[in-house]
Simulated scan of single mutants.
Amino acid sequence: MDREWGRSIGVADVAAHAGYSAYHFVRAFKAAYGETPGQYLSRRRIERAEELLRTADLAVTEICGLVGFGSLGTFCATFKRQTGMTPTAYRDRHLGQGVALIPGCYALLWAGGFPRRAEGGDRNSEEAG
Results as ranks from 00 to 15, higher is better:
D92K: 09
G10M: 06
E119K: 03
G6S: 15
E4D: 06
A59I: 02
G6H: 10
V99P: 06
G98W: 07
G96Q: 10
M85E: 11
K80Q: 08
G112C: 02
F69R: 01
Q39F: 01
T55N: 07
S42N: 13
A28D: 12
W5G: 02
S8C: 05
A28N: 14
A18Y: 15
Y40R: 01
S21N: 14
E62I: 03
E126P: 00
T61K: 05
V60H: 11
T55F: 12
D57M: 13
R43Y: 07
E4L: 14
K30E: 15
R27K: 13
V26C: 14
F114R: 07
V99E: 06
G121M: 04
R81C: 01
A12F: 09
S8W: 08
V60Y: 12
V67C: 01
Y106W: 07
C76M: 03
E119R: 10
Y106K: 00
G84V: 05
E4G: 01
R81Q: 12
R43F: 12
Q82V: 08
V60T: 05
L66P: 02
E4V: 14
A15I: 03
D92W: 07
Y90S: 04
G96T: 08
R123A: 15
G112D: 03
L41N: 12
A77R: 03
Y23V: 13
H17S: 13
G38Y: 06
F29W: 15
R91F: 06
T83H: 09
I9D: 05
A12R: 12
A77Y: 07
N124M: 06
L95M: 15
G6A: 12
A49T: 01
G38W: 11
Y20E: 15
A18N: 06
R27H: 14
A16N: 15
G120Q: 13
I46W: 00
F75R: 00
F79Y: 03
A31K: 11
R116W: 05
R27D: 14
G120W: 09
P103K: 02
E126R: 10
A49N: 01
A22S: 15
I102Q: 09
E62A: 07
A15V: 11
T86M: 11
A111D: 02
A18E: 14
F114P: 00
I46E: 00
D92M: 09
A59Y: 15
G34Q: 02
T86Q: 13
V60P: 01
P37H: 11
E126A: 12
S71Y: 08
A56E: 14
Y106P: 00
